[in-house]
Design a binder for these strands. Structure first.
Lengths: 121, 121
DNA sequence: GTAATACTTAAGCGAATGCCTAAGTGTTCA
DNA sequence: TGAACACTTAGGCATTCGCTTAAGTATTAC
């Protein structure tokens, strides 16, 4: 049973997979300035509309973007919870590693402050 | 000419692509506990050694992991700068979006605090 | 010197990705 | 009602991905 505080592997998979494509990141970028329709998302991209829709599906599946259709236009917007999840995964690993480096630094400093013991080469 | 403070698109591509695979994330996870040889990285993974080496190449290309070969064993360790880059990309977009939400909230609150003007809808 | 170790390279293969065009569906405007 | 609009679905196709096995190359231990 996975802890609910730790997102499932598959969830993180979809998140980073979604962020791994420049076109999808451009869509995310655009959406951080505010909601947009599918056509608005497609306009700056050098590809067909169906291609954009496919990218959008991935973004929705990852939870990074949510959409709602009203009449014939679908409006897309950013879901910041997903961005937080990705951020937390990376930050967790980075801080763990940096804490380790700090401890190592402390240890080495302590060793050099003990001149009565021989240092190991 | 790209600003050096903003990493190139290709760099971010490689970063998120590297993080998009559960095996590679497991390798990163393992390395946050300290450096490891290729065999040590491979041990918990259910795949052949060449497959692990291929993943390792991607991790190196992304800058997430750096390696050094001494004798016949290659030692791998985390490069926290790359983790910072990924973290910064996500954090930048998240905060931009959340600032927007805050401004919107302020605006709406201001509207409801003006009973002399008719509210829209 | 021989054998075991620790990778490393090469070739191949099935599945997934990223794109396309063509042909829909439903909504709105005139 | 008919045309324009905003997607949406379907099918196809080239490339990339993740993995495999087989056969290397150094390095270290006996």
């Amino acid at each position: 049973m996975p802890k609910c505080s730790e997102p499932a592997e598959r969830e993180i998979d979809l998140l980073f997979q979604a962020l791994a494509d420049p076109s999808r990141r451009a869509m995310v970028d655009r959406l951080t300035c505010g909601p947009a329709s599918v056509s608005e998302l497609a306009r700056p991209l050098a590809m067909s509309l169906p291609a954009v829709v496919q990218h959008l599906h991935l973004l929705e599946a990852s939870g990074l973007v949510c959409t709602e259709k009203l009449g014939r236009v679908r409006t897309c917007s950013i879901e910041s919870t997903a961005l937080r999840t990705a951020e937390a995964w990376v930050a967790g690993r980075r801080t763990a590693w940096e804490r380790r480096l700090d401890r190592l630094g402390d240890f080495l400093a302590e060793q050099t402050n003990k001149p009565e013991q021989e240092s190991t080469q």
